[in-house]
Design a protein around this nucleic acid. Structure first.
Lengths: 175, 175, 175, 175
DNA sequence: TTTT
DNA sequence: TTTT
């Protein structure tokens, strides 16, 4: 009955479309994203460059789904950390189908990338809340249930020193 | 002020010693582990096998620290997921020192590996609670604050089907 | 045309069956694994323990496929690192189907875990090289194309210390 | 003598300074980066926002070091995947010191993020190839030794479809 | 189909 | 020393 195993997916990619948001009866948000990752290489025989794009179906639950709906748009680059899940469903012909998704739930992570310093000329952001360039970055915290960093006990022992490392390093340390 | 960045460490390794457990004034547990990972390769010129062991200083907080203290022993194999943290301290001569640790807090993951099917002859387990082989595996859940999987909303939509996949697959799916 | 994105899957789980090995025309090995990961939690309302097993379809190429075929068996615990890939195929009715797999290629990682069902009673080691208990662990190196660690230049600076469990650390370092 | 363990670090952060590049006698490049990751949270008692920045010392070897030197600058956001390594050294007083670094070698990954400070006003692109805005992104491939994806056998089965944002998916697949 |  |  003990929990066994690790099931983790890490993606860095771009949205192929604006997120689709819906809500459960309880008011919980669910976001569906289509994320592209691509790899490219040189063909071994011809030496020609080749590229392959992989599309990932991502489902986000809860607070991160709301943030996704508010701040992510087609083309946005995002870091996602979740788990693999395959669900079975029937199409209209009653045929069984399986869909594998990357699920970002309360234990998942979403982080917007790139910071949107686009200078304003970008074709992105077109669907963004008005009056807001990209500086309205999300509170896309590392984890939806982080309540204070998780180790308040340590605070006393942790010198307030290395907070931002604004203090001067010793010459000794080779940074 | 928004959270920026990902700071993640994943280790699979063995304990060099029994965990050291201590408690904060608030009663919170802290476990210190020394974890070895090793890589080996063949020397490019001589073709001789080479090996290098890396030792990691790991600090675990909270519930997972208690589980570590109860179930991990010198030699145990463990999966750990946490973050890098460097703290500054002074040695007895007042010299500044820096120590980098892998911190497993409320957002971290600890998972015992190998399941201890050692047949009883193993030299491990010597420090284990009496009357307990290795079957008393911990509830080392994927995350200390998992409260039901994080997506109860989805349950209704999720057919109770693929729970354990005990149902038969279609011939169609090439598993 | 530049490579963009990260597509990474990390699994720690158990094989539901012995690996299926086949070979390409070129003699390259391909292994198919079915890997289970499970998570469990307490139901929020009823407080009852719940468990969910997820099954992952894993495809391994090359040298690691050979190692999988030789050393992994039904029940084996394994660490896998690869990428998500969805491929389209047609069933006998000509219907389009999609299957998402975790692909472990030359950039992937496979690592056997547990390192020793030494009990001997297991139906296990049947495929293992004779005369070799669990020490006959695979050379499941972190990466199929590691050629010496990639940083030979640094070797001189690296003290040969800390090699193995038995070393005593300096008093200065708070391990 | 078998390779045991996983030692993996994943960082997404910003450079605190331009990379420092140097070369070995053999002509191999080495880049030193200082990477910041930050997390922030609300203080449990006061409710006040708190933030903590962690600085990571990163060492990159080989081709990726060259790319880092050419394309990364102070402020750049980057994805890095490497391993933890602690080395011992002596300061001028002959005192032992330990420094823990994130090492990106031939098995590591570096990926520039954000893909486009297109503003032009940035002190940024100064090292970029002329005539090339942000599209001149580096060939920071997922791995320095990728030689064709590692699974050429599978290529025939892989439809050339889904290459790029513009493709329309089948109606069957619920993306 | 695994594992606990 | 970064970023928001």
């Amino acid at each position: 009955m003990a929990s066994r195993g690790i099931n983790k997916v890490i993606l860095v990619g771009n949205l192929g479309n604006d997120p689709e948001i819906r809500y459960t009866a309880n008011g919980g948000a669910i976001a569906n994203l289509s994320i592209a990752t691509s790899e490219q290489w040189k063909d071994k025989s011809s030496g020609e460059p080749r590229e392959k794009t992989e599309w990932h179906r991502v489902v986000i639950f809860g607070k991160l789904a709301e943030i996704a709906g508010e701040y992510l748009r087609k083309g946005s680059q995002v870091y996602l950390e979740g788990k693999l899940q395959t669900r079975k469903w029937q199409d209209q012909q009653g045929q069984d189908k399986y869909t594998t998704e990357v699920v970002i739930d309360i234990n998942g992570v979403m982080q917007m990338l790139g910071g949107g310093r686009t200078g304003g000329e970008s074709s992105y952001g077109q669907g963004q809340p008005a009056g807001q360039k990209n500086y309205g970055q999300p509170q896309a915290q590392q984890n939806q249930n982080s309540q204070g960093g998780g180790q308040p006990q340590q605070q006393p022992q942790q010198a307030p020193a290395n907070q931002g490392f604004s203090d001067n390093f010793d010459d000794d340390i080779p940074f």
